[in-house]
């Protein structure tokens, strides 16, 4: 009976411990690569368009613009089991957590692109007064210890004709 329980414990560990980490590694990696590719393509589109983003509050003197419109983009992102495992290891020694940095950068690029796409739909060519907020989502018993963050970026989009 105890042998049976022990075997059950090992199976449990393999399936829910190692298994989920491996699943997280493969699926997480695949989605990350696909997402990064998608981000690069969408960013390349905006590079050609020359959409200027700035966090200044006022437009430079000499620029004429319409009244402006609010644009924003947001995304909530979670880390996979493998990254969480690496992050957990890193927490023992402290220091920079590269895996989490990559996740946050992906979230930020995605949110910024959503904002830029909104500005593009409104035929604007600059986004001024750019601001960013990040907040942690969850914290309940299920999500404790997991990485789930929201990135929200916003600004005012203008159609400007540039004097400079």
């Amino acid at each position: 009976m105890s042998d049976f329980l022990e075997a059950l414990g090992i199976i449990n560990f393999l399936v829910f411990g190692v298994g989920l980490i491996l699943l997280g590694y493969f699926v997480g990696r695949a989605t990350e690569i696909a997402h990064l590719k998608d981000l690069t393509e969408r960013e390349a589109h905006f590079e050609k368009m020359d959409l200027t983003i700035s966090d200044l509050r006022t437009l430079p003197a000499g620029w004429t613009a319409d009244e402006g419109v609010f644009v924003g983009g947001q995304v909530v992102i979670a880390s996979d089991q493998f990254k969480r495992f690496l992050g957990g290891l890193k927490k023992l020694v402290g220091g920079q957590v590269g895996t989490y940095e990559r996740i946050m950068n992906r979230a930020r690029r995605e949110a910024t692109l959503r904002m830029m796409e909104q500005a593009e739909r409104k035929n604007c060519n600059v986004i001024w007064c750019f601001r960013q907020e990040t907040s942690t989502v969850g914290g309940g018993p299920v999500s404790r210890g997991k990485v789930m963050a929201e990135v929200f970026v916003y600004g005012t989009a203008y159609k400007v004709s540039r004097a400079v």
């Binding site: 200027t52 983003i53 700035s54 966090d55 200044l56 509050r57 006022t58 430079p60 992050g87 890193k90 927490k91 023992l92 020694v93 402290g94 220091g95 920079q96 957590v97 989490y100 940095e101 946050m104 950068n105 930020r108 750019f130 400079v164």
Partner: peptide, 28 residues
């Protein structure tokens, strides 16, 4: 601040950003 006293902005190059995520170690 948005402007520099005594200086003039001649070119706006756009947003620049930097981030880092730090973990404290178990001892701390």
């Amino acid at each position: 601040t948005e402007s520099v006293p005594g200086k003039e902005i001649v070119k706006i190059l756009g947003l620049v950003q930097g981030n880092t995520i730090r973990a404290k170690h178990a001892g701390r």
